[in-house]
Design a protein around this nucleic acid. Structure first.
Lengths: 197, 197
DNA sequence: ATCCGACGAGTGAACACTCACCTAGTCAGA
DNA sequence: TCTGACTAGGTGAGTGTTCACTCGTCGGAT
């Protein structure tokens, strides 16, 4: 009966296996057998570290939250405008990047299950709120420094995050080629409209 | 062995039951037993009209596509700006409207499953493309009539649909109160920025 | 000798789907 | 008008399969 902290190396390996299996089969068809098949372990071996399938999924989620947060915190662009564009670049996943696409769709899938599964809500909420915060901070800086017009930082953050999340949610999931580029253009034009001339 | 056209009345009853069960339990936990519990029929009775659970889900999807399309086509506002605002109002579901929230989350859930389930892709693609088309047409009209700046209609449509879909995908699913209002404000400001002064 | 990490082989429950059967209505023929 | 055949609509009780999870055991490091 674990509950002891899982060694980071094992946690990362299992999270990685959940990630791959989730991208391949989707949440509804995700089984512990498939997770085991993507890892070096046997099915029973997974249960040595985790008590339930849900805990394994949460491990994947926590690892993704960390990854995204690290990505966002490491932006080294200068000035609010460049920083905002960099954030959009990170959030708007490339259609052709198989790996990133899989992960993002997997997270979207978990998101849509959040209303029915309490254990998923915590990490997901943390992830979205952190991202919202990062964007809002950049916009606030921009407004204070006189780079952006006097817009509402929280509203602007909500719009940008909704748009990028929504893009993964419908265009990536349906394989709607071209929408990504159109959206990139529109989002760039939106940022233009924030900048004071 | 059905495959004969399902009588519209029966189709609507079953679609409604799928809708309710989906909103209550989510896609991953959706069972034919739960669908039967939400309808007047028995589990076996459902199979009199449909050959598989997937077909019942598609029936729900088709009925939702119709409903949304009817809503969008019936907008009677005058002029591109008012029409665009009306579309946003329809797409940005009210947090407190339990029913609409359930339906939208259910559709999001199916969306995230589309990559792994071919039968869902068709109706969903049709739905999103129709909506994109409606928005793009309004924007195109606005540009031609000199009401809007010379923006790219397809990009603008992609941004608006992404934002509203994304909102359901993360804020509604996570119960993030307040984000809806912030987003409404930001979207309204965005439409302001499209209008020529 | 002990214990950590791991596994093959289950186990019981839940699920999608089927089947034999029922009920009520319609209608032809006596 | 009664009777029997037929059909559309529907069901309760399964069936085979898949799943999450467990258990007894085992190799190897200490």
């Amino acid at each position: 009966m674990p509950a002891d902290p899982v060694p980071p190396e094992q946690k990362e390996e299992i999270a990685q296996a959940v990630r791959t299996a989730l991208a391949k089969h989707g949440y509804a068809r995700l089984t512990t057998k498939k997770v085991a098949a993507e890892s070096e372990k046997s099915e029973a071996g997974l249960y040595y570290y985790y008590d339930s399938k849900d805990e394994m999924i949460v491990a994947f989620l926590e690892s993704s939250v960390d990854y995204l947060a690290r990505n966002l915190d490491q932006i080294d662009a200068d000035g609010p405008e460049a920083r905002l564009r960099a954030v959009c670049d990170i959030l708007l996943v490339d259609e052709d990047d198989e790996a990133a696409r899989g992960v993002n769709i997997a997270v979207m899938e978990l998101l849509s299950h959040a209303p029915h599964n309490e254990t998923l809500r915590g990490p997901l909420l943390q992830m979205e709120q952190h991202t919202l915060g990062v964007i809002a901070d950049i916009v606030r800086d921009g407004v204070e420094q006189g780079v952006f017009r006097d817009v509402d930082p929280d509203g602007t953050a909500a719009l940008i995050l909704s748009a990028t999340d929504g893009y993964t949610g419908f265009a990536l999931a349906l394989g709607m080629d071209g929408v990504g580029d159109e959206l990139r253009g529109a989002l760039s034009a939106y940022i233009d409209s924030l900048v004071l001339d």
